[in-house]
Structure formats: C-alpha cells, structure tokens
Simulated scan of single mutants.
Amino acid sequence: MRATEIRRLAARAGIGPGVSVLDLCCGTAGPGRLLVAELGCRYLGLDSSASAVELARRLAGDLPCRFEQAELPPVPDGRFDVVLLLETMLAFPDKRALLADVAGVLAPGGRFALTLEEGRPLTPGERRQMPDADTVWLVELAELTELLGEAGLTVTWSEEWSAAHHATATALLHRYRADARGIAGQIGPLALTELIAAHELWADWLGSGRVRKFALVAVKR
C-alpha cells in the first residue's frame, strides 16, 4: 500500500489520537508505524511470523507500538475501536469465522478497515499457476458484504484501487526482473522464480479485471 492510501483509509476509519487499533497480519508493520507516528493512535500489531514481529519491534524504535505473535483466527480477546486487515483478506479461506472474530473485539460503533482482492475463486488451472495458492482465497465483493452483514458489520465506505495496485504490481515485477541476480543470491533461485511468477499473475489479473482491489470500512452495529 502507498502512504497516501494508508492515510486515506485511516481517515475514513476515524483513526486519531487515543483511538485503539488492532492490526491483524501486520507483518513488519509499515502502515501501523506510520499511523502511530502521524496520528498518535494506540496500536497493537499481530502476526504469525516471529521474525516479522521481531523486525517490527526493531523498526518501531521509540514509537509506542505493541506487537505480539499470534496465529489467526482466533483473534485474541480485547476491545478495540478499529481493526485493520491490510493486503491479507485473501489468505483466509474461512472468511465467515474471521469476520465473526473481528466483530467480537470491536467496541459498539467500532470500525473494520480492510483492503480486499475481489474476484471469483481461482479455477483449478489458476491455482496450479499461482505459487502458494493455498494462501489465495478470492471472494467477490457482494459475498463479502453479505458475510460482513452476518457478522453485524455494515459497509459505510468503499473505494476501488485497482489501477493504482496494478501499477504497483507492475513496477515491482520490473524491479524483481532487473535485480534478479541479487535477489536470487539472498532468497535462492526457486523463491525468486515464484516471486516473479506471482507478480506476473497479479499484474495480469489486476490489469485485465480478473481481480479488482478495494478498500472498505465497515461499522459494528
């Protein structure tokens, strides 16, 4: 995500000083660190990767961020004003269970702010093409909206970001190809091949409309 997109989503979700934010699948928490530094929110980032959490802590420095390692779902107990899920909705095959957990930790009137890779589920042929296809579970926007409603969450804002994310995926693909030798030296040739193959597919799908990218905010009723 671009910094402008993170700020726009945060504004729509009402993130500001003192607002409690739970960031699911935070990775190294680039968006979270930006929000804490600029908006002064209270922040907890969760990720299943111990190395990502450790790196997030180091990069946060003196920022008042908290991080925990956790497999999701379930979402740990607590009460939060905002739950974030950025760039990772597609990794959850059981979205109904995830959304029920998200609704369970939101305070009344709390906001769920997310990005969504939207489209029909992958065909068997597409799954064979996509590296790590077991982490790619697309859902159509109408179905996700219905699942949000079942969980007691009402979409109050959405915006399509397909063009910007197509441009980003294409730019990354060009850089990976240009720096192939150096990247392979760090992660190995197989991982590089899979990295390029995945970005070729995402660039093609976002460019053709096979997949669309959205940002949404849903409020707990």
Score class of each variant (00 low, 15 high):
Arg8Glu: 12
Ala10Lys: 11
Ala13Asp: 09
Pro17Arg: 11
Val19His: 02
Leu22Tyr: 13
Asp23Pro: 15
Ala29Ser: 12
Ala29Asn: 06
Ala29Asp: 11
Pro31Leu: 04
Arg33Tyr: 07
Arg33Ala: 06
Arg33Lys: 05
Leu34Trp: 15
Val36Leu: 06
Ala37Leu: 10
Glu38His: 10
Leu44Cys: 10
Gly45Arg: 15
Asp47Phe: 04
Ser48Met: 01
Glu54Phe: 14
Leu55Phe: 14
Ala60Asp: 09
Gly61Trp: 08
Asp62Asn: 13
Leu63Pro: 08
Leu63Asn: 08
Cys65Thr: 12
Cys65Trp: 13
Glu68Lys: 03
Pro73Asp: 06
Val75Trp: 03
Gly78Val: 05
Arg79Met: 08
Arg79Glu: 10
Phe80Thr: 04
Phe80Asp: 02
Val83His: 14
Glu87Cys: 08
Met89Phe: 13
Met89Tyr: 12
Phe92Ile: 12
Pro93Ala: 15
Lys95Phe: 01
Leu98Val: 11
Ala103Phe: 05
Ala103Gln: 03
Ala103Thr: 11
Gly104Glu: 02
Val105Leu: 04
Leu106Asn: 01
Gly109Ala: 00
Gly110His: 04
Gly110Arg: 09
Leu116Gln: 10
Leu116Asn: 10
Glu117Asp: 06
Gly119Val: 03
Gly119Cys: 05
Gly119Phe: 02
Gly119His: 01
Arg120Ala: 09
Gly125Ala: 03
Glu126Val: 00
Arg128Phe: 03
Gln129Tyr: 04
Met130Gln: 03
Asp134Asn: 15
Val136Arg: 09
Trp137Asp: 12
Val139His: 12
Glu140Ser: 10
Glu143Val: 09
Leu147Met: 05
Gly149Met: 07
Gly149His: 01
Glu150Tyr: 12
Glu150Ala: 08
Ala151Glu: 13
Leu153Glu: 10
Thr154Met: 15
Val155Phe: 10
Trp157Ser: 15
Trp161Cys: 07
Trp161Pro: 06
Ala163Asn: 06
Ala163Ile: 11
Ala164Cys: 09
His165Cys: 03
His166Met: 07
Thr168Ile: 05
Thr170Val: 02
His174Met: 06
His174Gly: 14
Tyr176His: 07
Asp179Val: 01
Ile183Pro: 00
Ile183Asn: 01
Ala184His: 08
Ala184Met: 06
Gln186Met: 15
Ile187Asp: 09
Pro189Ala: 08
Leu192Gln: 04
Leu195Asn: 00
His199Ala: 03
Trp202Lys: 00
Trp205Glu: 01
Gly209Thr: 04
Arg210Ala: 01
Val211Ser: 00
Arg212Gly: 12
Lys213Cys: 02
Ala215Cys: 12
Ala215Val: 05
Leu216Trp: 15
Ala218Gly: 14
Lys220Arg: 11
